[in-house]
Write a protein that binds this DNA or RNA. Structure first.
Lengths: 344, 344
DNA sequence: CTGAAAGCGCTAACAC
DNA sequence: GTGTTAGCGCTTTCAG
């Protein structure tokens, strides 16, 4: 019933014997309309329960006031924190955020991105799927000059704003820390090396070894998808080497946890026999026992920065791109703190 | 440059010397258009890089193909799982999902909900903020007959679809389990009792006590906001009672964890001296030590169900409402497993 | 200070 | 099978 009679500016105009344009202007606080009529209009609008139809206004303005965000998995602490950060600043700036998850699948990612384009998002914030290897869908945004911001998992070959954490420094700090703790044979479980993120973590690891005069043993470096199962498999593989490692730097906390549980069950004492470090500071890494040394990534801030960046682009159309590198923080916990654990 | 020349159906029509409506029909696979012309049109559309403007089509159809979802906090495992579930089915059905977080603040929630209305979402899925106490903003949706689904934290006084977990049964199972483990004085830390969720958990708790012939001691029941700090405070308060409890059923896992850590540091042995149970099955509850007994809530499924429900309403306009109650599962872990822990 | 008119891009009667 | 026409609700020149 009142479903069909959603009031429009015309209804208000008609009632007041004025024109729709005046109503429109009044609702937008256009100073060209006298304060008197402005108030009269707003009063009526209010009592009628009028709500401007953003769809119509968006169409007319060729602007959706919407920011798209696509992540591999919503339901992962790091990503949901980023989303939370984006939402926080976007909301304050009057933007709506629409989200989608790629489930780390390239084809779903392509679909999502295209549908976001069709929906005329004003900008797109994305962390690409592990398996994405072609980037035409993203180049589309660049071609149409729709602001595009990569975060965390970025694409080298597309020139645009990027926001990452200092993965290299993270990898370096972890490794240096392990060396400082007296570990000698440090293994590394890397994520897919087509992603810069994981490449940089690995580079940091190697650099630290080199700077400490330790030769890199390629058999100590594995590459997988960093799932729980991968953690167990990696543990098996590494510990069955002729000379197994005495410390393992895992590409994320999930792997670190599963690997740690597995080794503990096998009788290894952690951190005494073997040191373990993760990456990302997932909530569980703090409370698990032994607690896991890891690298904190500022997810929420990353989201905020990404949103600020994209909004500035949307509103100013400035043409210069930047790559923001956020600092990482090494959080030393029990799983690698051999010196403290021995002395106490 | 090509920014301004985003092709429309008119461009295609003009190029092919046909009418725009034919193009529109062809793009929508309307069988009234011959296959030949349909293909010709699609080919050109493709080579022009044409993408239908959903904004325009939405305005015309008075349908945004968008589902709104508002949660207290995106960045909480349970809620992000629900979002993930919603996104999953909404995406498959061709809907876009827009999300927002209330940060558990009533005023932000009101703003969000109103802006979603202005954006003409086709339906709204919401779990209300802890402090929300007036519901006019939600009644608006009911009045306009826009589908509305509550999940988890629902509003009794609004008649619409609801989807909750069986909190009563959850509270009951937890308490019965503690009794079975031989605990005698069982305390309960409840969340805000204006929310049905927490009220039901508490009711389940009391019912279990009653059925086992245990009298309810009101000094053993606390109410707070279930933060980490609340956990510590509650622990202090409870343990300083003349006859302190020997088990504590916490309204969520966060409280359970902080309370457990605090008591452990004070020298209590868990579960021997004191049994602890949480609620929600946060990821950390499984890996912390001792691991925390808790109630699993199917967040992802809840999101899927909520999306299915709302899409059915959007598309059929059926007028009957249902409340779906999803089962909960008691997950027995170390923090309350006194019998096993004693024998082993 | 206000109004008339045109149009954003798409769709759907209604014609033929 | 295809075209004509009108309009979704809002904004914005251009007039006055």
């Amino acid at each position: 019933m009142d479903k069909n009679t959603e009031p429009t500016i015309h209804d208000i105009a008609h009632e007041l014997n004025i024109s729709a344009s005046t109503v429109s202007r009044a609702m937008n606080d256009n100073p060209r309309i006298s304060l008197k009529t402005r108030e009269k209009i707003k009063a009526l609008a209010n009592s009628l329960g009028y709500r401007p139809n953003t769809l119509a206004s968006n169409l007319r303005n060729k602007k959706s006031n919407t920011i798209g965000i696509v992540v591999p998995l919503i339901n992962r602490h790091f990503f949901s924190s980023v989303i939370s950060g984006v939402e926080d600043v976007a909301y304050k700036a009057g933007y709506t955020v629409v989200i989608s998850q790629s489930n780390d699948q390239a084809d779903k990612e392509i679909n999502i991105v295209q549908s976001m384009f069709a929906n005329r998002v004003d900008g797109l914030i994305i962390s690409i799927a592990m398996q994405t290897e072609t980037f035409d869908h993203l180049k589309l945004f660049r071609r149409k000059h729709i602001p595009l911001v990569f975060f965390d998992r970025v694409v080298d070959e597309i020139e645009t704003d990027k926001i990452v954490v200092d993965d290299f420094a993270g990898g370096f700090k972890v490794t240096q820390h392990l060396i400082d703790q007296g570990y000698q044979r440090i293994a590394h479980i890397a994520g897919p090396l087509n992603l810069m993120t994981y490449r940089e973590r690995k580079n940091g690891y190697r650099q630290a070894l080199i700077q400490n005069g330790i030769t890199c043993d390629e058999s100590l470096v594995l590459e997988n998808r960093l799932t729980s199962e991968d953690g167990v498999n990696a543990a098996k593989q590494l510990m069955s080497l002729a000379t197994p490692p005495d410390a393992i730097f895992c590409g994320n906390d999930t792997t670190a946890l599963s690997l740690m549980m597995f080794l503990r069950d096998k009788g290894y004492r952690i951190p005494r026999d073997i040191g373990i470090v993760g990456f990302s500071n997932e909530p569980f890494s703090r409370v698990v026992s032994p607690s896991i040394t890891t690298i904190a990534q500022p997810g929420f801030e990353m989201g905020q920065k990404a949103a600020e960046l994209i909004i500035r682009k949307i509103e100013n159309k400035e043409r210069t791109y930047q790559t923001i590198i956020l600092p990482t923080e090494l959080i030393i916990r029990e799983s690698s703190n051999r010196l403290k654990s021995v002395q106490s």
